[in-house]
Design a protein around this nucleic acid. Structure first.
Lengths: 105, 105
DNA sequence: GCAGTATTTCTAGGATAATCGAATTAACGC
DNA sequence: GCGTTAATTCGATTATCCTAGAAATACTGC
């Protein structure tokens, strides 16, 4: 995980609508959720939701799987773990900041 | 930590330049770093850096302290912990997603 | 008060993003 | 093939962000 990729994912989550979408998907768990259901739960127009979903897909935070006419969306746990790992490792946090790997900056 | 505030902080970190600034500050540790040093290390114009620092300050991710003519910048660990806590709790992650507190969505 | 260094504010440009209605494609059942 | 539901792409508008030079402010030491 490099800085640019991490920034892209953070930016993707750095929007209230997208963060709500993401959180909704996380709570849906393994089963995932059809686009329509997300749309109804959050009350946003289909085109707007589709637009935001694309951004989440591009950064790998969300995956989709087709089931007949509906698209099931799922939060990607590995992606989230990678991002949190970056924040904890590179930018440290909980710990006393003892995990400075490289020192390129 | 509500969704909007979390989104604001994520957005603040969701920019390559700002993420580099933040990472630099975290690595500087408790001692912090003067604005000038950040500017020289990352090679960005003073006005651009100042602009980005304002955004990090507004979200509480960075604090500043004046020492004579120089401003010492420090990464706020509590803020970062709060944000990571939100991601882990509300959006879960490492764990098997067993910490769903509320279910407002 | 003046010179000098540190940092910010002003200003303006170009770029990117957010929103959402309307039109379009995708997939199924009959 | 046609109708229906699901979801996306198109198109246009508005708002916001990023960048950075130039001017202004903040603080100190003399």
């Amino acid at each position: 995980m490099n800085v640019e990729q991490a920034a892209k994912q953070l930016e993707a989550l750095g929007n209230t609508t997208r963060l709500q979408v993401y959180r909704t998907l996380v709570r849906a768990g393994e089963a995932g959720l059809p686009v329509r259901q997300i749309q109804e739960r959050l009350g946003i127009p289909p085109s707007t939701l589709s637009h935001h979903l694309q951004r989440l897909l591009l950064t790998g935070l969300v995956t989709q799987e087709r089931q007949a006419t509906t698209l099931i969306c799922r939060a990607s746990y590995p992606a989230m773990n990678g991002l949190i790992g970056f924040l904890v490792d590179e930018c440290c946090a909980d710990a006393g900041c003892g995990t400075q790997a490289e020192n390129a900056a």
